[in-house]
């Protein structure tokens, strides 16, 4: 039930945020946050190895996954440590950033 409620909030935010960020060329805060993800997941989420690609990921899927890493519902080796260090609002920013990356293009 709680999970369902969270999902509704997530979706609602998901609709609201792109409108805000559409004005800026790139949200620099989101870009800077996402910079730290590149070591494992590749530049702008374009993985060049076996690590999961984040570029082009559906934003709802991304936010849900991060929340589940945070709660422990989704098993992980590393990601639970990182997910716990970010706020839910930051998950949204990162989700927007990675969702807006074109797949098959690095920059």
């Amino acid at each position: 039930m709680i999970k369902k409620y969270l999902l509704i909030i997530t979706c609602a935010l998901g609709l609201a945020l792109p409108a805000i960020h559409a004005q800026a060329e790139v949200d620099k805060h989101a870009r800077n946050l996402a910079g730290s993800c590149a070591a494992c997941h590749g530049t702008n989420g374009h993985s060049k190895s076996g690590m999961p690609t984040l570029a082009g990921l559906d934003r709802t899927y991304f936010v849900t996954a991060l929340k589940e890493f945070k709660s422990g519902a989704r098993p992980a080796t590393v990601m639970q440590h990182h997910a716990k260090g970010y706020t839910d609002a930051e998950f949204e920013l990162l989700a927007d950033f990675f969702a807006s990356q074109k797949v098959g293009k690095k920059h």
């Binding site: 070591a39 993985s47 076996g50």
Partner: peptide, 23 residues
């Protein structure tokens, strides 16, 4: 929430190599 592995694993060994390639 930061921390270390629960236990060593070959899965993390593979991730370590992926990490190197991507970084």
């Amino acid at each position: 929430g930061g921390g270390v592995s629960g236990k060593r694993s070959a899965e993390e060994g593979a991730f370590a190599n992926f990490w190197l390639d991507n970084i």
